[in-house]
Design a binder for these strands. Structure first.
Length: 497
RNA sequence: CGGGGCGUAGCGCAGUCCGGUAGCGCGUCUGGUUUGGGACCAGAAGGUCCCGGGUUCAAAUCCCGGCGCCCCGACCA
């Protein structure tokens, strides 16, 4: 195990700091493939925990998992006009099925066999609406087949110009839910419901507060009627779109001819929704909680929730503390706590502390001879503070500490967000804010794309969402903070990832 | 595709200006002593100096041409 280098001080550069945290927490590594990261076991475990929690929520709302192909015929993408336009610039294509030797050496030793060119290239899915609705068309005949509620966990590829570990990689892991309904109202309710699921997961599990709302025309999903999103504010005051849920209307149903017979005997197109969250959430988690000592992982998602670090001098002490450590580990494991005992004798305790801190473990339990004598452990929290805890009743104490840490992380993230949110902005104030610290700026919006474009041009800020009622200011703004025309909705602007 | 930085041991870097035997720290391996906040001593292993060409008695270093990576932009349902 390589010793972690010091994390770059945050003052240096947020991007480099972020990379350091990810790398030193051993969440991911760069790969030889452009823009594609390798998710290391520690990061993948985090993803599995996220999957587990989300999947249970999907099942609880009646969804089933299925799997659809990685390859999509190019013509499928072309069937929905807006959808093509949105994704045409960022897809990977399979054009050949064989390689041939060139007789050269090195990288040029092989080339695609021209004879094996596909008549119709295959697109590596950038999202699966097209292939899934092509199947829905086969499966849905009657109103009795509705609603059809599906989800798939998979990888997708988007050929972005610039990539960033977890936040925007060429290939990434996600889930995409796809549903078909008999009415517009039902589809709308589904899209809203799943947005709520994302919010619950991100707030309760990731301890990452979000604001929910609707995207503007310019920011909505290619092919959707309406896009809803959860948006979080990172520590550098840039916004992260952490999940989206789309009411697709009948756009894809019409493109793929997904029709059903109504109870009355008529033929109708279905109403679709799609919704997704990705490994980007891991990036969001890192940027929300971590500090200059490394990752800070919220307890509910921490691959290791507590680490036991034994301390000894003599062999006698070693066997003593290890035996207490083993017992403690067994007891906590039985209580459903993910716990590790770090019995390595190649490292001094201090070195172990730094290593586990960099990996974000919420709670460290130190056991030395003095603790054994006193029937206690020293419990140190990743978020600060260290106090003795009696071995008697340790399960309850650890459970309570983890819950407190979880709640504390959410609260401080929320406080930080509110500190960096301003309301009722004027144009002048808005420009200063975006040039300065940045954050969420709430203000009136005329709804015009021209205003949006101009704001982006001048301040790099975009409308993150038109917030849901809960997040709106008490006094609805009357005029657009930029052009002064009547406001049609309050908007939340920020510079974003 | 623009701006900046970089490519030398597993990792982090110095050496490049001013050409002359390939270096340092960390890690790794052996042995010993250690262990309550990044242990210490002794020894050892580990290199196409990103690639190709050129100049030169001699190139990590100079010249020409490529490639790749990171950060910041542009792009990004």
């Amino acid at each position: 195990m390589a010793q972690a280098q010091k994390i770059t001080p945050r003052a240096k550069d947020f991007g480099e700091w972020y990379n350091d945290v990810v790398m030193q927490a051993e969440l991911a590594d760069y790969s030889p493939v452009r823009g594609c990261m390798v998710i290391r076991p520690h990061g993948y475990r985090l993803w599995e925990l996220m999957q587990g929690a989300l999947d249970a929520m999907f099942k609880a709302t009646g969804h089933q998992n299925a799997y659809f192909p990685l390859f999509i015929p190019m013509s499928f993408l072309a069937k929905e006009a807006e959808h093509v336009e949105g994704f045409a610039k960022e897809v990977a294509l399979v054009t050949h099925t064989r390689l041939m030797a060139t007789g050269k050496t090195g990288p040029q030793a092989l080339m695609p066999d021209p004879e094996s060119a596909l008549e119709e290239p295959l697109v590596v899915r950038p999202t699966s609406e097209t292939i899934i609705y092509a199947m829905f068309a086969k499966w849905i005949h009657s109103y009795r087949d509705l609603p059809l509620l599906m989800n798939q966990w998979c990888n997708i590829v988007r050929w972005e110009l610039r990539t960033r570990l977890f936040l925007r990689t060429t290939e990434f892991l996600w889930q995409e839910g796809h549903t078909a309904h008999a009415s517009e109202a039902e589809a709308e309710a589904e899209a809203r419901q799943m947005l709520g699921v994302y919010r619950t997961f991100q707030e309760e599990w990731m301890a990452m507060p979000v604001i929910t709302g609707r995207k503007t025309e310019s920011e909505k999903f290619a092919g959707a009627l309406c896009t809803y999103a959860v948006e979080a504010l990172m520590q550098d005051n840039k916004a992260l779109q952490a999940g989206t849920s789309h009411n697709l209307g009948q756009n894809f149903a019409k493109a793929f001819n997904v029709q059903y017979q109504t109870a009355a005997g008529g033929l109708e197109y279905v109403w679709n929704t799609s919704w997704g969250v990705s490994t980007r959430m891991i990036g969001g988690l890192v940027m929300t909680h971590s500090d200059d000592n490394g990752l800070v992982c919220p307890p509910k998602l921490a691959p290791v929730q507590a680490v036991i670090v034994p301390i000894w001098k003599s062999d006698e002490e070693k066997s003593q503390v290890l035996s207490v450590g083993e017992k403690l580990k067994a007891e906590l494991t039985q209580a459903g706590i993910r716990v590790e005992l770090d019995a390595r004798d190649s490292l001094k305790p201090g070195a172990k502390y730094f290593e586990w801190e960099a990996k974000g473990v919420p709670l460290r339990l130190e056991i030395g001879p003095r603790d054994v004598a006193a029937g206690q452990v020293m419990a140190a929290r990743r978020t600060g503070g260290k106090a003795p805890a009696g071995l008697e009743g340790i399960r309850a104490a650890v459970t309570a500490a983890l819950a407190e840490i979880q709640a504390g992380l959410f609260q401080s993230a929320k406080d930080r967000r509110e500190t960096h949110s301003i309301r009722g902005v004027t144009k002048q104030r808005f420009i200063e804010f975006m040039k300065g610290t940045g954050g969420f700026a709430y203000g009136g919006f005329c709804g015009s794309g021209a205003c949006e474009a101009e704001i982006k041009q001048e301040t790099a800020a975009t409308v993150r969402v038109l917030p849901d009622p809960e997040f709106r200011s008490p006094e609805p703004p009357k005029t657009c903070m930029w052009c002064g025309k009547p406001s049609v909705a309050e908007a939340v602007w920020a510079q974003a990832y």
